[in-house]
Design a protein around this nucleic acid. Structure first.
Length: 612
RNA sequence: GGGCGCGUAGCUCAGCCCGGAUAGAGCAUCGGACUUCUAAUCCGACGGUCGUGGGUUCGAAUCCCACCGCGCUCGCCA
């Protein structure tokens, strides 16, 4: 389906992995599911039924089976028998021993329920004591995840904060699913906004500007941008006209490839972007490469795209501008202005062809207001002969304030830095309150408090955003964004800290977690078995979430995992278990739990504290 | 007006793509559990016309159609 990996012609070879590379191991849950599908298909075939719809699904809570099939419903008419009878007939066709990890098949009412065997839980326990747990086998497929790509005009505000948080999680998710992932930030350094900014930076005097909100580049620089826009809106018409002439000169200079103009704009762009990187690094959202839009003007690829577009049938020359009349869109796509200059989308076409040259897949995380543009981009790329199945888009809604949207230009909105600071401050208060209440400060140093406040504070913000479907709108409210109650990051992080506490108490190195050969068979309480089954599901969750590019499913899983672990914690003493065998097995289960929750949180980009 | 997205408990959300077992959580409210491996935890109670109306189906929160409300979008901006 995907083209073979091609040589990287540019960019650092920094395939940063958040989970260690997976060793050779069969993913238990995924192979069990495959076994179930085979079994259902075999049973249907043996009984003479069509095998196009296997009806394999997750059973509801309270049903002990690991997977189920509802296929008997659909066959009732054809069989001339009620569903329960069909289910029984199918179950009779099957010998569990023929299928890996399948321990039993039972018809329960109209359902065909599949139960795992002992090897499944034993292999899960062994597999999950590996720190790589949850990382799927390498797919030998490269993918570039482009996210954030906010115009370098000023501080990152909360309105766009979903982009780096979702984007980073999507990248982590694909990495965990076995892809070679690069993270890109596309820098719009060629548009009118940057020309205005450059003009304003050169035109106004710092002495006339207000104090910056923070002593960092993007906060200092945005003052020029805001002042410039204010001038263009309010100054007298002659002055505005003169300013517009200067701004046009900058745009023409960029289009003509004038080095001096690039340098002037580049100074502003690099300065602002440098500050924005510092803010994003707090999340942390790090990038392998910052790809500048001007690059595709300078290397001739935008001109090449224009020439090829002009040859296409849907290309029309109307009102002195070259446009693409795309069949599926009401709006034509202008790709060359009447003055002969290119547009953002034209350059983005060259940008995406560059991605296709260098990666097997390209994923872009975009705000919903770019949706139409993204559709036209895809359509144009298709017309240019690209395989657009390699391009996928993740769309999210902006975060609004109760009174409306946030704007860098107008200076309305909440800065991400302020949100993170406030969240960390509240987390620190929580830690300190608990230390006072619980008399458990003896083993927490000031550094620990600082670390926990940061891990919990930033984790809570990320988790709150990444755990929701991106298409749902969010209205920002301080109290809601900073709610540390259950179903938030600290709830899940606490499970990790509990695991570390137990392992540390047992004298085990939390990082290495060497647990020898243990007998999983002694883990026979409902809580232990439920926990193992939940641990096993991680691979299925990673797989499904990666296919659909939906990291919020991993967040849902962490919550379910935490609930299951807490039930185990309540019912099954580890350090004071009745016998050594049980103690050893439970310690292995705790180690497995730690890797499960740490790696799931890792995909979400949420820190896993060893104590809190 | 056209296109796209969203609408599930008082509030915030899973579940919807791929229809199936009593629609799940948390917050809030009320009641319980810390001499115990960390109570940022756990247990219980209360709470739902799954926006509305049709349709398809043995079966619909899930698929189809219409409508209502909210958001985004429809520039030779990015």
């Amino acid at each position: 389906m995907l083209a073979a990996a091609v040589t990287m012609v540019d960019g650092p070879d920094a395939s940063e992995t958040h989970l260690p590379a997976a060793g050779y191991r069969t993913p238990m849950y995924l192979s069990f599911r495959e076994s179930v599908r085979e079994a259902v298909a075999d049973a249907l075939e043996a009984a003479g039924y069509p095998t196009d719809d296997l009806g394999v699904e997750d059973p509801p809570e309270g049903v002990d089976a690991t997977l189920a099939s509802s296929v008997a419903f659909r066959l009732a008419g054809e069989a001339g028998a009620p569903p329960p009878q069909v289910a029984a007939e199918l179950a009779a066709e099957l010998d569990p021993a023929d299928y890996g990890y399948v321990g039993a098949v039972r018809a329960q009412g109209p359902y065909l329920n599949f139960f795992t065997d002992d090897a499944y839980l034993a292999d899960t326990l062994r597999g999950a004591t590996d720190p790589d747990w949850g990382h799927l086998p390498d797919r030998d497929t490269s993918v570039v995840v482009e996210h954030t790509s906010a115009n370098p005009t000023g501080p990152v505000h909360v309105g766009r904060a979903r982009n780096p948080i979702i984007g980073d999680a999507v990248a982590n998710l694909l990495d965990a699913a076995g892809y070679d992932v690069d993270r890109h930030y596309y820098v719009n350094d060629a548009g009118r906004q940057m020309a205005v900014f450059t003009w304003a930076y050169e035109r106004f005097d710092e002495a006339d500007l207000p104090e910056p909100e923070r002593p960092r580049a993007e906060y200092r620089m945005v003052r020029y941008y805001r002042r410039g826009n204010e001038f263009l809106e309010n100054a007298d018409p002659d002055a505005v006209e003169a300013a517009e002439a200067e701004i046009d000169a900058i745009l023409r200079g960029l289009e003509a490839g004038d080095e001096a103009t690039y340098d002037r704009v580049g100074e502003v762009v690099d300065s602002v972007l440098g500050g924005m990187k510092r803010c994003l690094a707090r999340l942390p959202a790090e990038f392998d490469e910052f790809v500048k839009e001007t690059r595709f003007m300078r290397d001739g690829s935008t001109d090449d795209v224009v020439a090829r577009l002009q040859e296409l049938d849907p290309a029309v020359y109307e009102e002195d501008a070259w446009q693409l009349d795309l069949p599926d869109f009401e709006k034509t796509l202008v790709f060359l202005r009447s003055d002969g200059t290119s547009l953002y989308t034209t350059r983005d076409l060259a940008h995406h062809e560059w991605k296709f040259d260098n990666y097997d897949r390209a994923v872009t995380v975009l705000g919903e207001d770019h949706k139409l543009q993204a559709g036209q981009l895809r359509s144009a790329l298709d017309l240019l002969g690209n395989d657009v199945d390699r391009l996928e888009t993740v769309i999210y809604s902006y975060v609004d304030l109760p009174e409306g949207g946030m704007s860098t230009r107008e200076g309305t909105g909440v800065d991400l830095d302020d949100l993170l600071d406030e969240s960390i401050a509240r987390a620190r208060e929580e830690v300190e309150d608990r230390m006072a209440d619980r008399l458990r400060g003896d083993d927490l140093t000031e550094d620990d408090v600082e670390r926990i406040a940061r891990q919990v504070g930033i984790g809570a913000v990320r988790y709150d955003i990444v755990s929701k479907q991106p298409t749902k709108g969010i209205t920002f409210e301080w109290d809601r964004a900073l709610d540390f109650e259950a179903q938030s990051a600290p709830y899940v992080q606490y499970v990790h800290a509990r695991c570390c506490g137990i392992l540390g108490e047992a004298g085990l190195d939390v990082e290495a977690t060497e647990v020898g050969d243990v007998d999983a068979g002694v883990l026979d309480t409902p809580e232990e078995r439920a926990l193992l089954h939940t641990i096993a599901r991680l691979e299925g969750v990673i797989e499904a979430a990666a296919v659909d590019l939906e990291p919020h499913r991993v967040a849902t899983y962490t919550r379910e995992f935490a609930e299951t672990f807490n039930a185990f914690y309540r019912e099954c003493p580890v350090l004071t278990a009745d016998d050594d065998g049980t103690r050893e097995a439970r310690l292995a289960l705790v180690a497995a739990s730690r890797h499960t929750v740490a790696n799931a949180l890792g995909v979400l980009g949420v820190a896993a504290p060893e104590s809190m």
